[in-house]
Structures are given as structure tokens and as C-alpha cells.
Design a protein around this nucleic acid. Structure first.
Lengths: 108, 108
DNA sequence: TACGATATGTCCTTTCTCGGACATATCGCA
DNA sequence: TGCGATATGTCCGAGAAAGGACATATCGTA
């Protein structure tokens, strides 16, 4: 039961804070869309629609959280994203809020 | 800048995981809808619409996370909610997931 | 050469959510 | 008696999000 709750909550967090989870992944290592999609499947067992992922990545770049550069791998073109300083700030703010949430477990 | 990010993230979490925040509040102390609304304003500076809150509370009761009992205070009727075992499990699962998120800060 | 995987992008329809309005009742105070 | 606060509830329209389809191109392998 609690195990199911954990899965449910993880899925809710990833759905609603997907951008942050993507930033966290790219923080660890620069990455391209398709790779991110695959990573989410293997790590979290969550299938991202590419029809949602690619527009989101472009949006995150537009907002200054990510930068991208095209890379050639054989005949394939990859749009490799790296996190910016602003992106790191956002991830750090997230970590801060999480710690705060845990600290205030017994709000009284 | 980071300060704004924190506020933004707190608001996103509360919006998307509102039910969990409510369970956490009731875990600390049984409470009725109107009081919850006021608590959110004073604690988090977040205004909850009662048009969203009351249906959510009823839903949480239906799902077995909360139980309620009517209480009379003068001529006023309050529907006081207490958290159930299932509700506590859910809050604990949330705390577990949060700790996991912090631990895996550098996903590699 | 045909198919599955890699790689990125748009578009449209349906579903869901949000904000606000409508509704009712009591209490205390001016 | 009228108003703001307390207290709980429903309903509806607009805007946002989700899901899936449409679109294109390369690579490796059977």
C-alpha cells in the first residue's frame, strides 16, 4: 500500500514539476531530448511524450534555464542541452524548498 | 532572484500537491475547512478558493484519507476533519519521496 | 529494401482545471 | 438592521494541459 503511494507521489511530482526533473538530469550531464526521454523510462518507469518534451525543452531554453548546441553523430543531429547558471539557481531553490518541507513535517 | 524562485516553487508544490499539504496540516491538528483556508493565508500567504477546498476535503474523505464529524460552536456548524491511518501513510510516503529526491540530487 | 530505433518538430481535439459567481445560514457588533 | 466574518456548499465558462496523430530524416540490420 505505502509502496503504491510512493509510486503515485513520484509520478505526481514528475508530472507537475517535470521541468525541474529535466533540469536536474541535465545538471548531472548535458543531454538531448531523445536521451532524456529514454532516461525517464529506465530510471523512473515514466514515458514522456516527445510531443510534450521537445516544446518544453525549447521553452526552458527561451526562458534562459538551458542552452543548446547542435552536435553531429554520424548523420544524426542532436540538440544537446546544458544547464545555465539560472537553471542551477532554480534547481537549488527546489532543493531548498524540499528541505524546508521535510523540516516542517509537524506544522503546528 | 533565488528568493523569487523559492516562492514560485512553493506555490507550484502547494497548487499541485494541495491535498498532501492539507493532510499534513490536519495531521498536526484536526481542523475544519474555513480554518484550513485561513491557515494557508497566514502561514504560506496563499489564498485558497473555498470553491476548490470544500470539494477537495469531501473527496479526501471519500477516498478514506480523512474522517469528519460535525461540531457545534454556538449556532455554527463545523465539519472537523481528522486524518486516518491511510492518510498518515500517504503523508509518510510523501516525506519518503522528498528525502529520496534530495538524496539523488546528482543523478548520474 | 523494409523495419525498428534514433532524433526533432508541429498540430488538433478532448479532457481537466481555475477562477469566479451563485447560494445559504449564523454570529457579533455598530 | 445591516455589514463583515464565520461556515459550507454547488455550478459554469474560459483557458490550459494531455494524448495522440501527423511529419520528416538518418542509421543499422535482417
Amino acid at each position: 500500500m505505502t509502496e503504491n503511494f510512493k509510486k503515485e507521489i513520484v509520478q505526481r511530482i514528475i508530472r507537475n514539476l517535470l521541468d525541474i526533473q529535466i533540469l536536474r538530469l541535465i545538471l548531472a550531464q548535458p543531454m538531448w531530448g531523445y536521451r532524456i526521454k529514454k532516461q525517464f523510462e529506465t530510471r523512473f518507469g515514466i514515458k514522456l511524450r516527445h510531443g510534450a518534451l521537445y516544446p518544453l525543452l525549447n521553452e526552458l531554453e527561451q526562458k534562459g534555464f538551458l542552452t543548446s548546441q547542435m552536435q553531429q553523430q554520424g548523420g544524426r543531429t542532436r540538440k544537446v542541452y546544458s544547464i545555465t547558471e539560472k537553471g542551477v539557481d532554480y534547481v537549488e531553490a527546489y532543493a531548498f524548498v524540499l528541505r524546508e518541507q521535510i523540516r516542517n513535517q509537524d506544522i503546528q
